[in-house]
Simulated scan of single mutants.
Amino acid sequence: MNIDVAPLKIIKDQIEAFTTSLIATLPNILAALVFLLLVWLANRLIGSVYSRVLARTHMRSSLKAALESLVSVLVWTIGILIAATIAMPDLTPTKLLAGLGLGSIAVGLAFKDIFENFLAGILILLREPMRIGDYIEVEGITGEVKKITLRDTYLRQVDGDLILLPNSMLYKNAVSVHTDWERRRVTIIVGIAYGEDVAEGRRVMEAALKGLDTVDQQRPIEVFAQAFNSSSIDFEVTWWTGSKPVEIRRSKDKVVEAVKSALDEAGIEIPFPYRTLTFKEPLSLKGSNDNDYERGEDGGSSSD
């Protein structure tokens, strides 16, 4: 029986060629590994120096962490490229840059949203449109800013829920920063009866807000007659208080209590809707003796 040894010889030659090539390139590979070790040490050293430099600045902690990460990524990228040329001398920098360019396009298309959020996070951290602890509103979502990362912004809503918003959403849409100022203007509507004196009602409401600790007494307290409502003359009562949601709620609570007490004390009526009914057909009512009574007039209107 004859055995064809030609395929075996080809496999043997390929293994020998691979082994010879590996042994030839082994010093280069070891040199590349040693270089990567040096890159690791350099990255640690540069990161330590960079952290000390940033510690002397007034940058927010999230921005410092982002810049430190960018520097680390840059150091490792350059180090890996140099290590690749050391391990494979035939791999020139031109070929590396060309491959890196094609690879970056493919990665950019695959991770478009991630890079979009990353760049938006960098711009948000650099521009500082909001701070940790601010209450913001975007696209109907309101909450306290707890953390800003390179990809997400963490919002804690007043009911305790934690919401993670992509940074691109904050960068592309209008954002209301409710606590950008320490003070915020608040308005409630108060109505008095038509039979009351408008000027006296205005004076009583203004006096009720003076002296309240939740009302900023350094800013104007404004009371304006606003509209003729169905059962009352409505006043717009406006004042300034703290900008946090709990401060606004607490201030509204005390203002409503103070205005109600002041109007009651002054004898000024806060009306509730009055309704008068007239019936088009006579209405039959049965009394306790089952006697029928008729009540009503022809008509057909009801008013509040």
Rank of each mutant, 00 (worst) to 15 (best):
I141K: 07
I221G: 00
E144K: 11
L283R: 06
V107H: 11
N43F: 10
L209E: 04
M1H: 05
R156W: 00
K210V: 14
F224N: 09
M88G: 02
L212Y: 10
L38F: 15
V177D: 07
V177Q: 08
D304E: 05
G201I: 06
Y274H: 03
T25L: 12
I114A: 14
I248D: 01
T149K: 01
Y135I: 12
F228Y: 12
K147F: 05
L283D: 00
T187I: 14
I189Y: 09
I141N: 05
L97S: 11
E139M: 08
I29D: 05
S301N: 02
K12H: 12
I23G: 01
E116N: 15
I29H: 10
W240S: 07
E137D: 08
A24N: 11
H178Q: 09
R56C: 13
A83Q: 02
A42K: 06
L162D: 11
L165V: 12
I163Y: 04
S284C: 01
S230L: 14
E200F: 11
Y50W: 14
L283V: 12
D298G: 03
A65H: 07
N117H: 12
L263R: 00
I15V: 13
G296Y: 00
H58Q: 15
L209D: 05
D213T: 12
V198D: 10
R151F: 06
I122V: 15
L102W: 14
P27F: 09
V259L: 02
T77E: 07
A87R: 09
P129W: 08
L100Q: 14
V255N: 00
S48A: 14
S301Y: 05
A17P: 02
T57M: 15
V215R: 02
M205H: 05
M88W: 11
A65R: 08
Y293H: 04
K280T: 03
F224I: 13
P27Y: 08
T153L: 00
I86N: 05
K280C: 00
V107F: 15
E206P: 04
S230Q: 13
R44C: 11
I80K: 00
L91Y: 15
V198T: 12
V190T: 05
L41M: 15
L37D: 08
I11H: 05
G267K: 01
A17H: 07
G296A: 01
D304P: 02
S288L: 13
F235E: 03
D90G: 12
V53Y: 13
I10W: 04
E116M: 15
L45G: 12
G108D: 12
F228W: 09
T85F: 09
A120V: 13
N43D: 15
V177H: 07
E222I: 14
L67Y: 04
A65P: 02
E247K: 05
G287N: 07
T142Q: 03
Y154M: 06
I141R: 06
V71P: 01
F115K: 10
L109T: 13
I268L: 01
E16P: 00
N117A: 10
L41D: 13
F279K: 01
G108W: 13
I10P: 00
V5D: 04
G108E: 13
V5C: 02
P7Q: 06
T238D: 04
V246D: 08
V73Y: 07
T278Q: 01
E281S: 03
D161I: 06
E265R: 04
I233A: 04
T25K: 10
A208N: 04
G211F: 07
D134L: 10
F111G: 08
R184T: 13
